[in-house]
């Protein structure tokens, strides 16, 4: 193997190249338009020193996590029931397909009116962002359970409830997992929007508020934090899926090579 094909060599070369281009951009356009790596680092240090960055990350993360967990917990049984009961599905499907085109951000004002300015409205927004994606994924999952599996369970004496619990749920787990994983991404998008418009804390607030001081370096810090938060939670989720849910056919998307 040639030395350049070693993974750590190629990855570090890539990152060095990215940093160089970034720095070049900063030099050409000036640090106010594109803050370079060094000034971003300084900005980050500044925000870390007075504790705002850690606090903001914690707050945004808390909102996403609570809303995402609650949203998923509501969505999983709802999705299973809609998928399993034909009558409900016939009524629910047009509604689901209508509402899924309305992005969470569009609801911010309404949610503020309905749930108040506090945490509730943000968490409700994340729940909204999570709910429909998870439900629609579960629906696809339930619909694609092979007829033979249900038939064989039925002829082995399983009741409808046992079929739901012992056949449909386990067969749908890969779809549920994909659903909650995608929902995690949309949750981050929703919370940043909400924090930009209606919050005094959080990473979204940091990004939005920095414009007042023209601190583009702080904006860069916010963007990096978002990227890392999403990256780590997704990796954690992927790892969990691979370790715990492998028998249900959950595969890690990130780790898969073709």
């Amino acid at each position: 193997m040639r030395w350049i094909e070693k993974k750590w060599v190629s990855v570090s070369l890539l990152w060095i190249a990215v940093l160089c281009i970034w720095q070049l951009g900063a030099v050409v356009y000036g640090p106010d338009v594109i803050p370079g790596p060094w000034s971003t680092l300084k900005g980050g240090q500044e925000l870390l020193a007075d504790g705002t960055l850690t606090k903001y990350i914690g707050i945004s993360f808390y909102r996403v996590l609570v809303g995402w967990v609650l949203g998923s917990l509501v969505a999983i049984p709802v999705g299973l029931i809609i998928g399993k009961v034909n009558v409900i599905r016939i009524f629910a499907e047009p509604f689901l397909n209508f509402i899924r085109f309305i992005p969470p951000i569009a609801f911010i004002t309404l949610f503020l009116v309905w749930f108040g300015i506090g945490e509730q409205s943000k968490i409700a927004l994340i729940m909204y962002a999570t709910f429909f994606i998870v439900v629609l994924n579960i629906l696809t999952g339930v619909m694609s359970v092979e007829e033979d599996k249900i038939r064989s369970a039925r002829s082995m004496g399983a009741s409808e409830w046992q079929i739901l619990l012992h056949v449909i749920v386990p067969a749908t787990i890969p779809y549920i997992f994909t659903g909650v994983r995608i929902a995690m991404g949309t949750s981050y998008m929703a919370i940043i929007g909400a924090e930009m418009i209606a919050s005094n804390e959080g990473v979204g607030y940091l990004i939005w508020n920095s414009r007042l001081f023209f601190r583009t370096d702080w904006i860069f810090v916010g963007l990096f934090c978002l990227g890392f938060m999403g990256f780590f939670t997704d990796r954690l989720l992927g790892w969990f899926g691979k370790k715990v849910l492998f028998r249900y056919g959950v595969v890690s998307v990130a780790g898969k090579r073709r």
Partner: peptide, 19 residues
């Protein structure tokens, strides 16, 4: 369907429970 009549399907992959 009933417990007295068992079915062996053509496709084991679609009828066995892989989990």
């Amino acid at each position: 369907p009933g417990r007295d009549r068992a079915v062996v399907f053509q496709q084991a992959d679609s009828s066995l429970f892989p989990w």
